[in-house]
Write a protein that binds this DNA or RNA. Structure first.
Length: 922
RNA sequence: GGGCGGUUAACUCAGCGGCUAGAGUGCCGGCCUUACAAGCCGGGAGUCGGAGGUUCGAAUCCUCUACCGCCCACCA
């Protein structure tokens, strides 16, 4: 069993066939499961629970990808890693969905009754609730499914009840009659954050309130009081007209009564400083039952509240003949009637914001209602403090201000909802004595009067009440479980910034209150997903890109990579299928590099060339350690060939860099660095450098090279695994180290930086080989040398190390630059007459042009280059002649400038010689 | 009304006090070189939104300003 696959890799990665099998193997292997008893530092993420009825959208995909990258990284690092998944019951949203299907069936929740309806929702949940969870698996999410939770499962419901009762005991939960936000469509109260404001073009109506005769019965000589309002239909709820006490225009009206138009009812004129003299007419109709400001004014003046609009959004009996009309339909009728009665002075256009329900977009109706509230002051204060003092960090930190502003201006949280789907409020009312009982266990009787006729509060709690407990309720609270002890506080929360108030803030409050500690150390607020044009994705706009379709088309790895590489500090992330396609090429690149490496390691050439030599001993397996392990010292031979030394040194640098990026949660830079390195260094240079050796005769040198090839590719796969779990897992069996025990790559240790494995010499010399190769390629391209032209370039340099490297790797270079021979020259060597010159900091490259010479063109080229260099010299000299610069700039910077200056001066000198020669030809 | 973000190559973005401002895509020219044409090689391309200021040095920090976007908000 413990054998490597021997068959050649297929030409392409068949991700659609491989992904499900790989995922199933991970899951069956139990590799996602966390063990609180295991050693290691804890790394914990709780998933932002998607709605049970939901389908995977781009926002989830981004969220899950980022969490999975971090989770896989920390798991490989050896941390005790838990990623806890689950779903949210999503009160209104879910209830709406089920109600819609009932409607199609020709019935309704009212017809079914509460019990049957709730049972229907559970049924729905059982049937479709698994959808979203299956879809998370398609993305490769390595969640610990054994710990999957649902906000309405038994344990979490207990936690909700415990929290509610405790808060009630402490006086932090109360019930009362206040003006709240009401959605007439959902027929429930909603909290402040659930109201969104939309700017609308509307009208300001000027209504005449006729002054009532004074108590003596004499008709008033005062003209009618004109009041401006956007909502004439609420006038039936007016209980006063208010003016500013300092407003000289209305002094005579104070204390008088005015008649509400269309009603005959009269109300007092009161003075209140709230009234803005500048706005409208300076007189404000006071409607305490339907406006938050008016509600406040009414409290100050002890005015009654009249409800003119009911919970269905219909006008009440207070509206007389208009009773039963919808508030929005009533307005034009009322305006017409006012006009007819001569009580409408005029109408002005006005743009203002109206509140709408964030779920159904209906206009929110403020009305007075008996609801449950959470007293928020102390909770918000603690939550604010925890971010202010750094116990929890928001990333990017710019969000802190938003968070503080919200916490500072927060009002009590209305938590009761007139829904059936959710956690029913644990409150009972004694029908005999009216006592309210809030209890952990269902009460049998009234503790006050002993009455047994109790009625339970029909309302349920705001969905966000239970999600606010998510970081500890999912770990078993209020039980003192091993999970809770080990995994709370969680390490990082990854979510979109759109739910800072809804969710993040509430978790902060609840975590601090009930666990005595913050729920997470870091909150990563990632961008919101937009379409390719930057527009919000929405069903109505028709620009929704389905993540599952993208995965079907390009594979999960390419999709994940495209999300992770774009998830920087910006606020928008544009999902463009073309871009995903671009990264699918990267997956293909990796696959093909693997094909090459694999075929070489298996002892033959690629299968596209000659057949593999039968019986050849497979290459020595890769070493398990990271790059360069144990090779810091020793002779050149012991360190291996120059390309070997170089790739190990580079890989070591990359290991360090990407580790730092991931530790700082910069998945974008982690991805970008790997992309650059794998494609433009490993594939474009290293693999090309290895080929001649690998295809050459067998021997110690070849074997050493193959060993480096195998181990470095294995390292690359491990580095890529967090973001590209599938393709790396699929390839792993080919590159796993000796003693391979069938354990998957996801359980391998993440490569570690080796501070001893630096090799600046190798980096420098390979750079030199690259420079020469590029110079010759450039000359070939610039002068249009035919593809078959035989070139015999020369490199002029006196640097012994470089001369050495060039002569040693001459044959190798010839292939890369398509030349016939390469010769070395020194300062004494005369330059061949017909040749292109590339000036490098340490020498020149001469490429003979063999009849393709065009001295004028080259002259122009060299002159252009010398212009550029002159400018650089001037800049560097200017700096070094500036005493302020020498005085104030850091030493390293000055040293760099000096070095730079001598380099460009050398270059210019060298260029000067070249120019001279070309001029003599031209 | 208050706050936040963006403005860098044709497009999408990175860089956020010091290398000649980068990458991907696109574009132009040349290659079917035996891992990959989903590829290779070479190339052109930007007064870093505008105006001031701080600094030896600014795309980067400060002030003002223009446009685009987002969030919060009890002027009816």
């Amino acid at each position: 069993m413990n054998t490597r696959p021997h068959d050649p890799l297929p030409k392409n990665f068949d991700f659609s066939a491989a992904e499900p099998d790989i995922y199933a193997a991970w899951e069956e292997g139990g590799f996602f499961r966390a063990d609180p008893a295991a050693p290691g530092e804890s790394f914990v993420i709780v998933i932002p629970p998607p709605n049970v009825t939901g389908n995977l959208h781009m926002g989830h995909a981004l969220d899950v990808t980022l969490q999975d990258v971090l989770t896989r990284y920390h798991r490989m690092k050896g941390d005790n890693t838990l990623w806890l998944p689950g779903t949210d019951h999503a009160g209104i949203a879910t209830q709406n969905v089920v109600e819609k299907t009932l409607l199609k069936e020709g019935t309704s929740r009212e017809e079914l009754g509460r019990e049957k309806f709730v049972e229907r929702v559970w049924e729905w949940k059982r049937q479709y609730g698994g959808n979203i969870v299956r879809q998370l698996r398609r993305l490769g999410g390595s969640c610990d499914w054994s710990r999957e939770r649902f906000t309405m499962d038994e344990g979490l419901s207990r936690a909700v009840r415990e929290v509610f009762v405790t808060l009630h005991e402490e006086g932090l939960v109360y019930r009362g009659q206040y003006l709240i936000n009401w959605c007439p469509r959902c027929r429930t109260a909603v909290s402040d954050v659930e109201v969104e404001h939309e700017n609308r073009r509307d009208h300001l109506y000027y209504l005449k309130y006729v002054v009532e005769p004074d108590p003596g019965g004499a008709a008033s000589s005062l003209p009618p009081l004109v009041v401006a309002t956007t909502r004439p239909e609420t006038c039936f709820g007016d209980t006063a007209v208010a003016v500013n006490p300092d407003d000289p225009r209305f002094g005579e009206y104070l204390g008088r009564r005015v008649v509400i138009p269309l009603t005959g009812r009269s109300v007092p004129v009161v003075a209140d400083a709230y009234v803005d003299m500048e706005f409208g007419t300076g007189a404000l109709k006071v409607t305490p039952g339907h406006d938050p400001n008016d509600f406040q004014i009414a409290r100050r003046h002890d005015l009654p509240a009249v409800s003119a609009i009911d919970e269905g959004g219909l006008l009440t009996g207070a509206a007389g003949p208009y009773r039963g009309l919808d508030r929005l339909e009533a307005r034009p009728k009322i305006v017409a009637d006012l006009e007819r009665a001569g009580l409408l002075e005029r109408t002005d256009p006005l743009e203002h914001a109206v509140g709408v329900c964030y779920r159904c977009r209906s206009v929110i109706e403020p009305l007075i209602s008996l609801q449950w509230f959470v007293k928020i002051g102390s909770l918000a204060g603690a939550a604010r403090e925890a971010v202010a003092d750094g116990r929890t960090a928001l990333v990017p930190a710019g969000w802190e201000k938003t968070y503080f502003d919200w916490m500072d201006n927060i009002r009590d949280w209305c938590v009761s909802r007139q829904l059936w789907w959710g956690h029913q409020i644990p409150a009972w009312y004694c029908q005999k004595c009216g006592e309210t009982i809030v209890a952990r266990e269902d009460p049998a009787g009234c503790p006050k009067c002993g009455g047994t006729e109790l009625e339970r509060d029909p309302d349920v709690l705001d969905t966000w009440f239970s999600s606010g407990l998510w970081p500890f309720s999912t770990l078993g609270w209020p039980e003192r479980t091993a999970d809770l002890a080990r995994y709370y506080p969680t390490t990082v929360l990854v979510t979109g910034f759109d739910i800072i108030f809804f969710w993040v803030a509430r978790m902060m409050m609840m975590g601090l209150k009930f666990m005595g500690d913050v729920p997470f150390r870091t909150v990563i607020l990632h961008p919101l997903v937009r379409d390719a044009q930057g527009k919000k994705m929405s069903k109505t706009a028709g620009n929704v890109v389905d993540p599952l379709e993208v995965i079907d088309r390009h594979g999960a790895d390419a999709f994940r990579f495209s999300l992770a590489v774009q998830a920087g500090q910006a606020r928008d992330l544009r999902v463009d299928p073309k871009r995903v396609e671009g990264y699918s090429k990267f997956v293909n690149k990796i696959w093909n590099a693997a094909r090459l490496a694999d075929s070489l390691l298996r002892g033959g050439a690629a299968e596209t060339t000659a057949a593999a030599t039968p019986g050849t001993t497979p290459a020595a397996p890769a070493t398990p350690a990271g790059p360069g392990a144990g090779t810091a010292a020793g002779t050149a031979d012991a360190r291996g060939s120059l390309p070997d030394r170089w790739i190990r040194a580079r890989l070591n640098q990359v290991v360090k860099a990407v580790g730092l990026e991931l530790d700082a949660f910069h998945t974008d830079r982690y991805c970008d660095q790997l992309y650059q390195f794998v494609w433009y260094e490993f594939c474009d240079w290293y693999l090309e450098l290895v080929k001649p050796v690998a295809y050459g005769p067998d021997g110690p040198a070849r074997r050493a090279a193959l060993e480096t090839l195998g181990s470095s590719f294995a390292t690359i796969l491990k580095l890529l695994h967090p973001v590209m779990p599938f393709v790396t897992e699929a390839l792993w069996p080919r590159f796993a180290p000796a003693g391979w025990d069938l354990s998957p790559i996801m359980t391998q240790p993440f490569p570690q930086f080796d501070p001893r494995a630096l090799d600046p010499e190798a980096l420098d010399l390979i750079q030199c080989l690259m420079d020469v190769t590029r110079a010759v390629r450039q000359a070939r391209s610039d002068f249009g040398l035919p593809p078959g032209a035989k070139l015999s370039p020369a490199v002029q340099t006196t640097d012994p190390a470089r001369r050495n490297a060039l002569s040693e790797h001459g044959p190798l270079l010839l292939k890369l630059m398509g030349a016939e021979s390469l010769s070395l020259a020194d300062d004494e060597t005369p330059r061949p007459r017909e040749s292109a010159v590339n000036v490098l900091p340490w020498g020149q490259v001469w490429t003979p042009l063999a009849g393709h010479v065009n001295p004028e063109a080259e002259l122009a080229r060299l002159e252009k280059e010398s212009q550029k260099i002159r400018k650089e010299i001037a800049a560097a000299r200017g700096k070094l002649q500036n005493p302020a610069y020498l005085d104030k700039a850091p030493e390293e910077v000055v040293a760099e400038t000096r070095e730079k200056l001598s380099e460009v001066e050398r270059k210019l000198e060298s260029l000067g010689r070249a120019l001279e020669l070309v001029r003599s030809l031209a």
